[in-house]
Design a protein around this nucleic acid. Sequence first.
DNA 1: CCGGATCCCAGTCGATACTG
DNA 2: CAGTATCGACTGGGATCCGG
Lengths: 137, 137
Amino acid sequence: MQRTIHGRPYEQTEAGPKFRPCAPHDVLARLGDKWTILVVSHLAIAEGHRLRFSELKRGIEGITQRMLTLTLRNLERDGLLTRHCFAEVPPRVEYELTEMGDSLLPALAGFTAWIRDNWPRLEACRRAFDEAQRQDS
Amino acid sequence: MQRTIHGRPYEQTEAGPKFRPCAPHDVLARLGDKWTILVVSHLAIAEGHRLRFSELKRGIEGITQRMLTLTLRNLERDGLLTRHCFAEVPPRVEYELTEMGDSLLPALAGFTAWIRDNWPRLEACRRAFDEAQRQDS
DNA sequence: CCGGATCCCAGTCGATACTG
DNA sequence: CAGTATCGACTGGGATCCGG
């Protein structure tokens, strides 16, 4: 039997509930990596949703050339980003959010609000837990 | 100057936009790990938002004892879960979503909808990209 | 039944150096 | 300017065995 929870489909089997492989996990795993969200955010607030490599690199503190390259490649692979390459000297490459990439951040708005509301409590819980942990040891 | 994009706060500095450390990244990184979402989902559809260790283990295909233990510990640390330990023989431990943990999934509803709508296109983009990649090589 | 302890691998990320 | 190549540290996660 096919049901849904919080917009998420799953099947009720005899052995128990089974979630579909379409799981948010793949997307979350990408978004959860170290730089992706920052890159998308910077592009989202840029005019034309478009920035060149060096602008992104300057804007994101601590990112290395290598990681920026990899992050951009992955976003391009998922169709969230397009690469505009100009054969000039010196070379210039611009990255632009696709329509799909542009719709990603707004879709996260509800979650962002949740984080804003719960972050302090969550951090407090962590500290309390770690504190209790150190007592035992 | 303090601004906001898609509910996400950032500062506009001379050097460019700077996002606050409160970034969703910490939470996303946890949610993006291999099992967290599945555990939370199973608890969310359980009656009383409550399941015991072995029920979770049976319900989540492929998870090992070790990973289930770690995932539950992390959720407990963040205050999304409480552990109810019964000193019986054989021992019994139940895990229950806290109010905060319970509010997490609904907060993700918008994002879940986005995934449902865009997943096919995203997968198609991946395949196309990988295909083009093999041509070049 | 619940989970801690140990070993190991594969993937992620940083640092550095080099190229068109 | 915008990458690629290489090396090494660290870590998430699986397999297995052990203990209360």
